[in-house]
Computed example of a mutant assay.
Amino acid sequence: MVINMDHQLMIAFALCTLAGLSTGFGSLIAFFTDRTNTKMLSLGLGFSAGVMIYVSMMDLLPQARHQLVLGGEGVLADWMVLGGFLGGMLLIASIDKFVPEPVNPHELQLVGDLAGPAEEKGQEGLKRVGLFTALAIANHNFPEGMATFVSALQDPSIGVAIALAVAIHNIPEGMAVALLVFYATGSRKKAFLHSFLSGMAEPVGAVAGYLLLLPYLNYITFGIVFAVIAGIMVYISLDELLPAARKFGEHHLSIYGVIGGMMIMAVSLILL
């Protein structure tokens, strides 16, 4: 497969970096607002889920099968797509399984909870919380960065869609990370720094994807990776984004966001 590497790599790395920066933006929202705007958050989470689900089902999975057929896997293509899809779900589920809920950045918190220094929260186990937070940051953002990078490398339009969805869901994640680190240190500066660095795990994942996968990129590799990415994004949407939106008591707004995300994604894929 011939790829214009200079142009494609610049786009892929730029998208990963922009998606990662939204995590730091989330921490700024946490520090400069008095409370979480639950309506906008529910709408945004629903929108992100709609984009992820639509792209996965209507573009990534068909693309995965198409790539595998081009690679000569006509008979096994459907089974390989199914295996990759389920494998992606198991991968992200395993990551969540080994990250304790109190320090899991996907367990969203309200900005109103970000109150009081660490002394008011108690000192017991705070260093351990900080350690687990760093682990959670790396575990959750690394595969997202790799997924965005590989998708953009094959098709920039798909990469833009995935980067947008990841960026939206990284904002509340950044708020959660900032909250956890603030509990552990009592320092808003350190909380912002850790949140910002958690976002930078996205381009680190892109670099890893470049180093690990680039020598092996072909039709079959792209097909399997697309199926895995689809599984990861559907799992994130169903397990994290939609339940989080419902948690804030704005169920209908989250559904409107899902519909809006799907509609915008459908139109953009047709036009692009």
Results as ranks from 00 to 15, higher is better:
3 I>W: 11
4 N>Y: 12
6 D>R: 11
8 Q>F: 09
9 L>D: 05
9 L>F: 11
11 I>V: 13
17 T>K: 02
19 A>M: 10
24 G>V: 07
25 F>D: 00
27 S>Q: 10
27 S>D: 07
29 I>Q: 06
30 A>G: 06
30 A>S: 08
34 D>R: 11
41 L>V: 10
43 L>H: 13
43 L>E: 01
45 L>I: 03
47 F>G: 02
51 V>P: 00
52 M>A: 00
56 S>R: 01
57 M>I: 04
59 D>H: 15
61 L>F: 02
61 L>T: 03
63 Q>L: 04
67 Q>R: 10
68 L>Q: 15
69 V>R: 12
70 L>A: 12
73 E>I: 09
73 E>T: 12
77 A>R: 11
81 V>G: 12
86 L>E: 03
86 L>Y: 11
93 A>S: 14
93 A>N: 13
93 A>C: 12
94 S>N: 07
94 S>R: 07
96 D>N: 15
97 K>E: 08
97 K>N: 11
98 F>A: 06
99 V>S: 00
101 E>A: 13
103 V>K: 01
105 P>W: 06
107 E>H: 06
107 E>C: 05
108 L>C: 10
109 Q>F: 09
114 L>E: 02
117 P>H: 09
126 L>K: 08
127 K>D: 08
128 R>H: 08
128 R>Y: 03
128 R>E: 09
129 V>M: 06
130 G>M: 02
131 L>W: 04
136 A>C: 08
140 H>C: 05
141 N>E: 07
143 P>H: 11
144 E>W: 15
148 T>M: 08
150 V>G: 06
151 S>A: 08
153 L>V: 03
154 Q>F: 06
155 D>T: 11
157 S>A: 09
161 A>Y: 00
162 I>D: 07
162 I>V: 15
171 I>S: 02
171 I>H: 03
173 E>M: 08
175 M>N: 09
175 M>P: 06
179 L>Q: 03
180 L>W: 06
180 L>D: 10
180 L>Q: 05
182 F>N: 08
183 Y>D: 08
183 Y>R: 12
186 G>C: 06
186 G>L: 08
186 G>W: 02
187 S>P: 12
193 L>P: 00
193 L>C: 02
197 L>R: 10
197 L>A: 12
199 G>A: 07
199 G>S: 06
200 M>L: 06
200 M>W: 05
203 P>Q: 03
204 V>N: 01
206 A>Y: 04
206 A>T: 00
207 V>W: 03
210 Y>I: 14
210 Y>M: 12
212 L>F: 12
213 L>G: 08
216 Y>R: 14
220 I>F: 04
221 T>W: 04
222 F>A: 02
224 I>Y: 01
226 F>R: 04
227 A>I: 00
228 V>D: 01
230 A>I: 00
230 A>G: 13
233 M>Y: 01
234 V>A: 13
238 L>N: 15
238 L>Q: 15
242 L>I: 10
243 P>S: 13
245 A>L: 11
245 A>W: 09
245 A>P: 15
246 R>T: 15
250 E>R: 15
250 E>H: 15
253 L>D: 05
253 L>K: 05
254 S>F: 07
255 I>H: 09
257 G>L: 04
260 G>Q: 14
261 G>W: 00
262 M>S: 02
262 M>C: 03
264 I>A: 07
266 A>V: 06
267 V>H: 00
268 S>L: 14
270 I>N: 11
271 L>V: 14
271 L>A: 13
